[in-house]
C-alpha cells in the first residue's frame, strides 16, 4: 500500500465518520435534477440540428453547390439562395460600416469622455433599454424613417435611401444591433486598467492620444467580439426585414446589375427572409427540404460567427 493510498483511505474513513456513513440521497437527487435541466437544454440543440440536417442534407447531396449559386425559382429543383446570400452579405456589410464606428465612438464617449452627470446616466439607461426593444419595433422605425421619410413617396422609390432597398434594410439592422456593439465595447474599454492611461498622461499625451494609442488597441479583441456577435444577430434577424419590405415571393431577377445598383434596387432578399418565404409555401419541397437546406447555410454562417466570437474572447481575454 503506497503512501497516497493510505491518505485516501484515511480521508474516506474521516468522511464516513463525519457523514455517519449515509449517502445524502436528497442532495444527490437534487444534483441529478439540475443536471437533467442542463441536458434538456442541450437535447433541444441536438434535436434541432438533427431535424434540420435530416430534412436539408438531401438538397446538398442531390445538387451540391448548385443550391448556393442558383437564383430563386418557382421550380423547386432549380430554386437556390444566391440572391439571399448576396443580400445577407450586403446587409452585413452595411451593418458593420454603420454600427461599428458609431457603436465604438459611443462606447469611447461613455467610458472615456463623459462626466458622471444626468445626461450620461440617461444615455446609459437608454442604451440598456434599447438592447431590450423587440426587433419588430426596430422594423417599424426602419419602415417609418428609412423607407417612408428618407425614401420619399411612401416607399415607392427616390429620396436618400430609395425606399425599400438593401440600404434601408441594412440601416435598420445596424440600429438594431447598435446597443449590443456599445455594451460589449464599453465592457472591453472598462477592462483596460487605469494605470495604463495614467502612464500615457504622465508622458504628456492628450485624452485622444491616450484613447487612440493605449485604450483602443488594448480593448480591440473585446470590441471585435462584440462586433462579430452583433453581426451574427443581424444576419439571423427576419422580423425587421419583413417590416421594412424585403422581397416576399418565390421568384425575382435583378439581371446583371452592378453592386451599387443592387444596393439601391427595390427588390432584395436575405437568407432568413427566404427561409420564411419557403416555409409559407404549400409544397413540402419548399416548406421542408429547401427551407432546411437554407437553414443549414444560415446556421453555418451564424454559428461560425458565434464560435469565432467565443474563441476570440477566450484567446485574447487579458489578465491584467
Amino acid at each position: 500500500m503506497s503512501a497516497s493510498d493510505v491518505a485516501i483511505s484515511r480521508k474516506i474513513t474521516a468522511e464516513r465518520a463525519l457523514t455517519g456513513k449515509r449517502i445524502d440521497v436528497t442532495g444527490l437527487a437534487f444534483q441529478v435534477v439540475l443536471l437533467l435541466c442542463l441536458l434538456a437544454c442541450l437535447f433541444f440543440i441536438v434535436a434541432l440540428v438533427g431535424t434540420v440536417l435530416v430534412e436539408g442534407i438531401g438538397v446538398f447531396e442531390d445538387r451540391g453547390t448548385d443550391f448556393l449559386s442558383s437564383n430563386l425559382s418557382r421550380i423547386s429543383d432549380r430554386a437556390g439562395v444566391s440572391q439571399a446570400i448576396f443580400g445577407s452579405f450586403a446587409l452585413a456589410l452595411i451593418v458593420v460600416l454603420v454600427a461599428f464606428p458609431l457603436g465604438v465612438a459611443t462606447a469611447v464617449y461613455l467610458e472615456e469622455y463623459a462626466a458622471d452627470n444626468v445626461l450620461t446616466r440617461i444615455v446609459r439607461l437608454n442604451i440598456r433599454n434599447l438592447a431590450g426593444v423587440p426587433s419588430v419595433v426596430y422594423g417599424l422605425l426602419g419602415l417609418a424613417v428609412f423607407v417612408q421619410i428618407l425614401g420619399t413617396n411612401r416607399g415607392a422609390g427616390g429620396g436618400l435611401t430609395g425606399g425599400k432597398t438593401i440600404l434601408s434594410g441594412g440601416l435598420t439592422l445596424a440600429i438594431l444591433v447598435l446597443p449590443i456593439v456599445i455594451i460589449t465595447a464599453s465592457e472591453a474599454i472598462r477592462a483596460v486598467p487605469q494605470s495604463l492611461r495614467e502612464g500615457g498622461y504622465g508622458l504628456g499625451a492628450t485624452k485622444w492620444e491616450v484613447t487612440r494609442s493605449l485604450v483602443l488597441p488594448n480593448s480591440f479583441a473585446g470590441i471585435l467580439t462584440g462586433v462579430v456577435l452583433s453581426l451574427s444577430r443581424a444576419i439571423g434577424e427576419t422580423a425587421p426585414l419583413i417590416i421594412v419590405g424585403a422581397f416576399f415571393g418565390t421568384f425575382f431577377t435583378t439581371g446583371s446589375a452592378g453592386f451599387f445598383d443592387k444596393i439601391t434596387d427595390s427588390t432584395y432578399t436575405a437568407l432568413p427572409q427566404v427561409i420564411f418565404q419557403w416555409t409559407q409555401e404549400a409544397q413540402s419541397e419548399f416548406n421542408t427540404q429547401l427551407a432546411a437546406a437554407a437553414i443549414i447555410v444560415l446556421l453555418g454562417v451564424t454559428l461560425l460567427c458565434n464560435m469565432a466570437a467565443v474563441l476570440l474572447r477566450n484567446r485574447y481575454e487579458k489578465k491584467w
Binding site: 439571423g236 437553414i295 446556421l299 467565443v310
Partner: peptide
C-alpha cells in the same frame, strides 16, 4: 449554451 442563444429565431420557428 451561448451558441444556442445565438440561433436565429426563424430556425427555432422551423424546428
Amino acid at each position: 449554451l451561448e451558441i444556442l442563444a445565438g440561433i436565429p429565431s426563424i430556425v427555432i420557428g422551423f424546428f
